[in-house]
Amino acid sequence: MIWMILLGICSGMLVSLSRQLNGRLALSTSAMQSSFWNHLVGFAVLVPCALIAGSLWPAEAASAHWFAWVGGAIGVVFVASGSWLIPRLGAALTGGLLVAGQMLSSVALDLLRGVEAVLWMQLAGVALILLGVYLSRRG
């Protein structure tokens, strides 16, 4: 269990590490170029992983919904945004504001889709996040 907890913390640290590296690359190239390298290098790493895990083309892949294919296209813009923001805001504020946007939109999505959740906790969470965004703007 303790190992799983450490691994969970690691998964978040990898996000910050990746954003920091991409941000450094963007300083010498551009945000979009760093996003390109991020995806290309990640792809190269994942090919052997997929081969070990099973196959490069599972049988179900062909019948996937079209929306399941567009995540990568969205990810390119997301990674480029992170590389653009991190030299301007620093790692902590960049990460915090990205999480803020992610949580606000995911609550909206949950409400739209009628996902089961404790409503008052969601609304209190939204209020706290909005307060955080407001505070980040204060001098």
Binding site: W69, V70, V77, S81, L85, L89, T94, L98, V99
Partner: peptide
Amino acid sequence: AALCAGSLLTLMLLS
């Protein structure tokens, strides 16, 4: 920009 990019992340994770 950060809030919009965060929303993109929600869509990306959904996809």
